[in-house]
């Protein structure tokens, strides 16, 4: 049984059929990536998994439990968190308070402090800026914060929505290195990316989404070698 599986998911935004019978799954310990163009439905899929967008039909199973109708704030407590598209850091709170909000569902103060320090080790820039309002951070720093914040709930599965979006290439490499490290520490990663090259280089398996449908599904290395994928997403 997969740790996370999405089965035949249909999602509508008003009249728009955003996801059409999408099925994806992630096994414990994997990095799985979803690639696809703008508007393919990647973000919608992650939002539906997290309970932010209701599913019309189909279901989302997490560790054997149907979470399709579980409200977003309860899903976090089950062990599944998300770093959303556009980062959505709490601009009016300091870096440290953002991390504290990431651990909102937890009560173990010592453990929270420990994890916060671990995040500062993983992202030393956040330590330098811990008292700063997060709205004043650079895009790359906000992205690090968004990922760190998502990890503060000690998730077993983390959804990362476009961590490379609008970030300097050098920082992107840093961030991806850290994603690998996070995964190595035992967190399953479902990674949505437009930067297919980077995503496929760290993932074990991948899905290609086009206009709300999964059109390809394979091991990452094979997807990276696939002619159609190369032409459409890897620049030739």
């Amino acid at each position: 049984m997969s740790q996370l599986s999405v089965e035949n998911l249909d999602v509508y935004y008003g009249a728009v059929h955003a996801l059409k019978g999408v099925s994806v799954h992630a096994e414990a310990g994997e990095i799985v990536t979803l690639i696809g163009a703008n508007g393919a439905g990647k973000t919608t899929l992650l939002r539906t998994i997290s309970g932010l967008v209701p599913a019309k039909s189909g279901r989302v199973m997490f560790e054997g439990r149907d979470i399709t109708r579980v409200p977003a704030h309860e899903i976090v407590a089950l062990g599944l968190s998300q770093s959303p598209e556009g980062r959505m850091v709490f601009a009016n709170l300091s870096v440290e308070d953002n991390l504290e909000m990431g651990a909102y569902i937890r009560k173990d103060k010592a453990g929270i402090r420990e994890d916060r320090d671990a995040m500062y080790q993983l992202f030393p820039r956040l330590l330098e800026r811990r008292k700063q309002l997060s709205g004043t951070l650079s895009g790359g720093e906000q992205q690090m914060l968004a990922i760190a914040r998502a990890l503060m709930s000690r998730p077993r599965v983390v959804l990362l929505d476009e961590p490379s979006l609008g970030i300097a290439p050098l920082l992107v490499r840093d961030i991806f290195k850290n994603i690998v490290e996070i995964n190595r520490r035992g967190v399953t990663v479902l990674l949505v990316e437009q930067n297919a090259h980077m995503a496929l280089s760290i993932a074990r398996r991948g899905y290609v989404l086009e206009t709300g449908k999964v059109v390809l599904e394979d091991e990452a290395a094979k997807l990276a070698a696939n002619d159609e994928v190369r032409k459409a997403y890897l620049g030739g």
Binding site: S50, G51, L52, P71, A72, H73, E74, V76, A77, S81, Q82, P84, M88, V89, F90, A91, N92, L93, D97, M101, G102, Y104, I105, R149, A150, S153
Partner: peptide, 14 residues
């Protein structure tokens, strides 16, 4: 404060 900034991000925190 988190909710006043973004309902969506706040609910993602639990």
């Amino acid at each position: 404060q988190a909710v006043s900034h973004s309902h969506m991000a706040a609910s993602l925190m639990g």
